[in-house]
Design a binder for these strands. Structure first.
Lengths: 144, 144
DNA sequence: TGGATTGTTTACTGATTTGGTAAAGAATTC
DNA sequence: GAATTCTTTACCAAATCAGTAAACAATCCA
């Protein structure tokens, strides 16, 4: 099935919350949980993934919390997607030569490859900065 | 995960086999199985789906078999995808209003909607006729 | 009519993914 | 050393995926 899973969706919300708070210090998991309506234990693991992939920097202890590792404009949806779900790969046939029994002779494979490239480009084109701008327009996700 | 599943991939192969045989009578499940390297019992169910969605017409009995219901140019990848996996829906948030707790206020949802529309357009743009042309070029899937 | 041939339907299985919970552990601050 | 915050691991139920098996129904032909 071609479906973006909920973990990725939540990850985008986390990044968005941090982006809207950029320059104003750290945000804790607790604060994000309240803002973004994501179950705590689940959220913790998503945050750990984002941290492991170096999209965010985390600090333990009182006054700990999270912050983005780079400026808001430099993040895009593809990066967030891949931090959670791994490399974008819309068909097993594209993984490596020899996986598909039809392999090189398959007329369908180049089409999947093309579609995948298109999606990758499209996801890359959507930056976190744009999402912040949209969110500001809508007026949701207000932190104060 | 954003991944086209194997059933859809097989369905495309079935349609391709039928397309290449168009105008030359029916093709049996057995023949397609041999050509396309798909396990029999699995293939039968995929064919039943294609039949149920009226992409192919089937006939029982000796000299039975399958054929396309329309001309080759009128089929596209989206149609085949949806016959097997149901309507294209890349995020649960797009399914219906109210599914997402953030709902209307979500800045991410319009982006998913846009991405989904793009994919739909792209899948529609690839016709079975084009795949046949590609297959002819490559020289694979020869039936004689 | 009855057997051979071909598609249809349904039930089942094991492996993997998904969405989520829980808790022990480690780092940091005060 | 206690409180706070992130990290890691183990676990769970439900859904999906890939595939198997077999009973069943329709059709053709002798």
């Amino acid at each position: 099935m071609i479906r973006i899973n909920r973990r990725t969706d939540y990850a985008v919300r986390v990044m968005l919350a941090l982006a809207r708070h950029a320059g104003e210090g750290r945000l804790s998991t607790q604060q994000i949980q309240d803002q973004m309506l994501v179950p705590r234990a689940f959220l913790q693991r998503i945050i750990a993934d984002l941290s492991r992939q170096k999209l965010i920097k985390t600090y333990t202890g009182p006054n700990g919390g999270l912050e983005l590792t780079r400026s808001v404009e430099t993040f895009n949806l593809r990066e967030i997607y891949e931090a959670i779900e791994g490399p974008l790969l819309i068909s097993d046939c594209l993984e490596a030569a020899g996986v598909c029994p039809l392999d090189k002779g398959c007329p369908v494979r180049p089409r999947w490859a093309c579609l995948q490239a298109l999606m990758a480009r499209e996801l890359e084109a959507i930056t976190l900065a744009e999402l912040v701008a949209d969110a500001d327009k809508i007026g949701q996700f207000q932190t104060r």
